[in-house]
Nucleic acid binder design. Structure first.
Lengths: 351, 351
DNA sequence: TTGAAAGCGCTAACAA
DNA sequence: TTGTTAGCGCTTTCAA
């Protein structure tokens, strides 16, 4: 019983309707300028229905020179692929945006530094969204030069590749300025990822700028590299807590990484925010369920997806881009993980 | 500068190498039985390299009658799309499995009850994995009958559609039997989803069977429907706590839903597990970071993806399936959210 | 208003 | 060993 049903071809529809393939094509695609009499039109429609005819996308694709598929390249390592809490939401919004234009999404998780260009080079997709690119990604550069349509989701530091991102510098400043306002002056930072990720660099830059503005000297001992997963936050925080003068507050560049950091704090029977304040980044679903609930920077993931999809579609359709580098605003969500520095920490700081 | 680079065609490679297209095709595809002399072979390879030739997937697809793309249909509503914490991991494993066979994944998030069959009907993909199907999904049935290759991820109750899933009944029993062992007899259940989801039905069945075996009568007042998102768990738990005799333990069919349930408990200043024990399901990343850390059932998401991909590939390649319905084992992860019933609750129970 | 015919870029019999 | 040829299923120009 499980045998592949025979598919009707356009030819068969034409024969059944007693017309040529051209006519069938015109009717089915609602060609505007072809004045096909309603009677013929109906005959074609009936024939198509009777045969359960559905055009073969493979053929349409070849003749039109377009696959109507976008490639979504997700640069992540095996270790942190599960850490991306936003993927579902992102995909949903992206599809929402491009479906009306007849587009589909092909997802390609790739290790950073692996090549992913074959998707575009083999014309399997019409364009690429590269999610979370690294600084100076050579593949990105190459694709761009070959004339492939590429948009990066996240800031690429390659001037010529269009990108959509939140303003990471500004967003990090939001977080750090909040801690400064609370009275902290010894503020640590755990990056969300290694510094070859643009997001990590930019958030670090924002951290530094906020300190600068407040006249707080930058202390490199207070900055540790996270690596996208919770464990890296744990290790980084341990390092920070082992310092002779640990920070009274830490801005962690990712909620998932912050999870590990919080674990390290708990293990030492320190309390958040009484002993140490934490501000995260991302606002993953779980942040509000932690105790204390995590103060963090919210990312407008839906808008990111919408913008990215829209830009790539414009590129593909040959329309000019309104803006080459879109930066969306993020928002500080104040919950319970940050407070004023404690008396004890104060003493430390002044000693 | 941003102009589409001219792509070399096979014809051009043939001309440059001074051979026919056939020869080029044979060389590039490593046709075994064609005895092409190394010298010619090399000339073709050189020509291809010089022209940066990459075969056009659109053409290969048409002539071979295969797209080499699998469709992954994700049945979720707008409200819970973000709740799927496993998507990244699942995708990664799936791609891992099918990439060696030259396959790609096209992701299609769809509202339940929406049709998603056009992907298969238009031959845009060679086969479909349907993630989280409902009981008696008509579209699934139809596709199956039309001869499309479909595998469901999650148990479909349509006998003829091959499926991969964890053993939900067994897994739920694991959770509930654990609570019974701890001494609970008044055990509530919040389903992970509405009961038209097979996973919800099966977990409920497992809950009932565990009670049965322990000789505990089933009390429908202790069972509430969750709806995939945290909020639904909050509401359900409120209902349970408002009962004249609230349960001393609740098995929640999903960790995300459990998050809401825990929130409801916290709001009433009740403590977990002292006042009420909770066991979740899924073992999302965050479960271990809750306080108390959530006892839950772990799902082997990687194996699910691997199996699903493997089965669909076999179907497409016309190989017989070793097994039509694969059920993988899950594991109870004991953490801190469940303990023996408290004295007070005990009193309640005996009153 | 409709049809014939030429491809899209590739594969794979079949010939030579 | 290599080339000729006929498609894959559709779109679309051009002619009728």
């Amino acid at each position: 019983m499980r045998k592949k049903g025979k598919r009707a071809t356009m030819q068969q529809v034409a024969e059944l309707a007693g017309v040529s393939r051209t006519t069938v094509s015109f009717v089915l695609n609602d060609k505007a300028d072809s004045n096909i009499p309603p009677e013929t039109r109906q005959r074609v429609l009936d024939a198509a229905r009777k045969l359960n005819y559905v055009p073969d996308a493979k053929a349409v694709t070849l003749v039109k020179g377009r696959t109507n598929i976008l490639g979504l390249v997700i640069l992540q390592t095996v270790n942190n692929i599960s850490a991306n809490a936003f993927l579902g939401e992102y995909l949903h919004s992206l599809v929402q945006t491009i479906e009306p234009a007849g587009y589909h999404v092909l997802v390609h998780p790739a290790e950073p530094a692996r090549t992913y260009g074959h998707l575009a080079r083999s014309q399997r997709v019409d364009g690429l969204i590269v999610f979370g690119p690294l600084v100076d990604d050579a593949e990105l550069q190459a694709l761009q030069e070959e004339g492939a349509f590429v948009v990066t989701q996240g800031t690429s530091h390659l001037a010529h590749v269009p990108s959509v991102d939140i303003d990471n510098v500004q967003s990090a400043m939001l977080a750090v300025e909040y801690l400064i306002e609370l009275g902290h002056r010894r503020i640590g930072h755990i990056t969300n990822a290694p510094l070859n990720h643009t997001s990590a660099r930019d958030r670090l830059a924002g951290y530094r700028r906020a300190l600068d503005r407040a006249g707080i000297p930058y202390d490199e001992n207070l900055v540790c590299e996270g690596a996208l997963i919770d464990e890296s936050g744990y290790n980084a925080m341990c390092g920070l807590l082992d310092l002779p003068h640990p920070p009274t507050a830490v801005f962690v560049g990712s909620d998932v990484v912050a999870l590990g950091a919080l674990e390290a704090i708990r293990e030492r029977d320190l309390s958040v925010p009484d002993d140490i304040s934490i501000v995260g980044f991302d606002d993953i679903l779980l942040s509000r369920y932690l105790s204390p609930a995590l103060t963090t920077v919210h990312i407008p993931i839906n808008s990111l997806a919408n913008e990215g999809g829209k830009m790539l579609l414009q590129l593909i359709q040959g329309k000019p881009l309104t803006q080459d580098h879109v930066l969306l605003e993020s928002e500080l969500i104040i919950r319970d993980s940050a407070g004023p520095p404690s008396a004890q920490a104060h003493k430390h700081r002044l000693s």
